[in-house]
Simulated assay, not measured.
Amino acid sequence: MDSRKQVDLEFAYGSGHINPSAAVNPGLVFDASEADYIDFLCKTGYNTTTLRLVTGDNSTCTNTLLGRGWDLNYPSFSLYVKDGEQIMGVFNRTVTNVGEPNSTYVSSVYIPTTFSVTVEPSVLSFSAVGEKKSFTVKITGPKISQQPIMSGAITWKYGVHVVRTPLVVYNYIPGAPYNLNDGSTYSMINNKKATFRGSSIYHKNGIIGYN
């Protein structure tokens, strides 16, 4: 987890090291169902044929508008910004309390000075185990061009519980190791044979490459 050695940052080493003892009592969890993942895949470019290669069932992509799948209830935030465009993204998340019945989690944000992040509400109060609360993360900033990956994090804290979610903003740079337009990545849509080169960064065509 050294940014000096791995330019892909979170896209290479993930969210960080796991703490096994804390993992059995996380406090908050981000629930996502099978239907949520299907909707995410459809929004990011899968069609019914390619979707069924993943699900192995009769799932379909119908009446789904292509987009970035930002609202998959996943414990991370990844914002791709086209070269020369302003930083702007809104993410909706829901957490479920699996810790103490009466608990209040307060958010804190660590980000580079390049952009700003607003969490609303910034405090989540629970009165029961299994209770759900939603929040919105808004990321804003100036126009960026040829900008390497910028990393940050949002952390919710209550007592011994520290729930950290990584946040990255990145810009497409021609010729960079995560250039997914060079034909080196696997395309299910075009039925190309998988090759294992390039970065794991999601790009606008919704297809993922692997190191």
Score class of each variant (00 low, 15 high):
Ala35Ile: 02
Pro26Ala: 03
Lys133Ala: 13
Gly69Val: 07
Leu66Cys: 00
Ser134His: 11
Ala22Asn: 14
Asn205Pro: 00
Asp57Asn: 15
Phe91Pro: 04
Asn97Met: 02
Ile207His: 13
Lys133His: 13
Leu53Val: 02
Leu65Met: 13
Asn97Pro: 06
Phe40Pro: 02
Thr140Asp: 15
Ser151Tyr: 01
Tyr80Lys: 09
Thr60Trp: 03
Tyr110Pro: 01
Val129Gln: 10
Glu100Val: 09
Ser151Ile: 04
Val117Phe: 03
Ile173Arg: 05
Gly89Lys: 04
Glu100Pro: 00
Pro26Tyr: 02
Val98Cys: 06
Gly99Arg: 08
Val117Cys: 02
Pro148Ile: 05
Gly206Cys: 13
Val54Glu: 09
Ser199Asp: 03
Ala23His: 06
Cys61Trp: 06
Tyr178Asp: 15
Thr114Asn: 06
Val109Ile: 15
Asp39Tyr: 03
Pro177Gly: 05
Gly99Pro: 04
Tyr202Arg: 07
Tyr172Leu: 07
Ile189Phe: 09
Phe11Gln: 05
Leu51Phe: 09
Thr64Ala: 12
Ala22Gly: 10
Gly175Val: 11
Lys138Arg: 15
Ile139Met: 06
Thr48His: 08
Lys143Trp: 01
Asp36Met: 04
Leu65Phe: 10
Asn211Pro: 14
Lys204Met: 06
Asn102Thr: 14
Val168Glu: 08
Val169Tyr: 09
Ser21Tyr: 06
Val109Thr: 10
Ser122Cys: 03
Ser199Tyr: 03
Thr62Arg: 14
Leu28Trp: 10
Ile111Arg: 14
Val81Phe: 12
Val119Met: 06
Val169Glu: 06
Thr62Pro: 03
Val168Lys: 04
